[in-house]
Design a binder for these strands. Structure first.
Lengths: 184, 184
DNA sequence: CGACTTTTTGAGTATACACTCCATTTTGGA
DNA sequence: TCCAAAATGGAGTGTATACTCAAAAAGTCG
């Protein structure tokens, strides 16, 4: 772990390089060599700070998963539109992290700890969407709210992934259309 | 290429092993060693039939992409429900191929020929969905039909991927809910 | 400054990968 | 039955990967 100033700076450079590479080409692109080259660092320095490559990847993936959620403080008051807007803003304003979020969920082998973390986070997200739907009376029962929330989030993730594959795809427009369809 | 009977059988065994491995763990799991072991074959035999591992993977991925579509003959007469039912049947009845379809689209590096093929196929699929929506007057204009179709297919793919990550997820129920939401 | 710790370098290791080569066996038509 | 072509087994090749190590350099703080 980093203790000196210079070590902390190196840690940041490594995490930044890892984030960029994950965003650009998923796990396959984030080799140790590529990370070290982009960070301007040698393998020995990397392993002075991180115990393994996986640790660095996990940290970046964790940031991405966190960043998908808008301030958890507001949970319990926001509207469905607020939540969808927050997701759109996340994708538009932090495309690198957004790409990491999708690439990692998808690239990493199943039954992996990252996959489990992703799923755990997903169900919490569904809960939050479902609560907002209930508050706005878009739906009668708790169970239907959860189903509707799963479908909406499935659509948002599906559309975001579509955008990862084809960057000219207009994610914002389609995401707005998806939520508008819920509101009736 | 296989010319003798025994060679053709070997080819089938290799393709079957590749399909299973891709379904189970994506590209990472489909190593040459794993494929050969499962097929009960040595590397030399593999390369007597396929010029590269990529060729075998491409062939299986191609099958999966084809299999997503119901009979192209019917194109032009089927309803939106027919199309969604066909996708649900594909996922439920051929889960291996369905998993390959999603894993491959997602695992393979971007700008890859498989990704391009996947996207080309996707826009054709969107067209078909959009036409069905127009026929049923679910939508006023061609442009809105395409948008609505992209959202519905995004949701279906997103939900199917959710099921890949968590096999206990009820894909059929959510897919039906998604299409019901379109029909109003 | 001086002593101690952290950081860096860069060559080196072990392993897994796709793929090759060729002697040997099997196939199937004449 | 014979034989050329095809298929097979299995050791071997080159390369990329994650990771290690020890010596040297640089940072921290009394």
């Amino acid at each position: 772990m980093a203790r000196y100033q210079v070590g902390i700076r190196t840690q940041s450079k490594i995490l930044e390089a890892t984030r960029e590479l994950l965003a650009e080409g998923g796990l396959d692109a984030a080799t140790l060599k590529a990370i070290c080259e982009r960070a301007g660092v040698q393998a020995g320095s990397f392993y002075n700070i991180f115990p393994s490559k996986e640790q660095a990847v996990m940290q970046v993936a964790g940031e991405a998963i966190q960043a998908v959620d808008p301030d958890p403080e507001l949970s319990g008051t926001e509207t469905l539109n607020d939540l969808v807007d927050a997701y759109i803003r996340f994708v538009v304003e932090q495309p690198d992290l957004a790409r990491v979020y999708l690439q990692v969920a998808v690239t990493v082998g199943n039954d992996d700890s990252v996959t489990r973390r992703f799923l755990r986070h997903h169900v919490r997200r569904v809960e939050r969407f479902a609560q907002a739907m209930l508050r706005e009376s878009l739906v009668a029962t708790q169970a239907e709210a959860v189903t509707k929330a799963e479908v909406l989030l499935g659509a948002l993730d599906g559309l975001a992934f579509r955008w990862v594959l084809d960057r000219s795809f207009d994610f914002t427009k389609h995401a707005r259309y998806a939520v508008a369809q819920c509101g009736r």
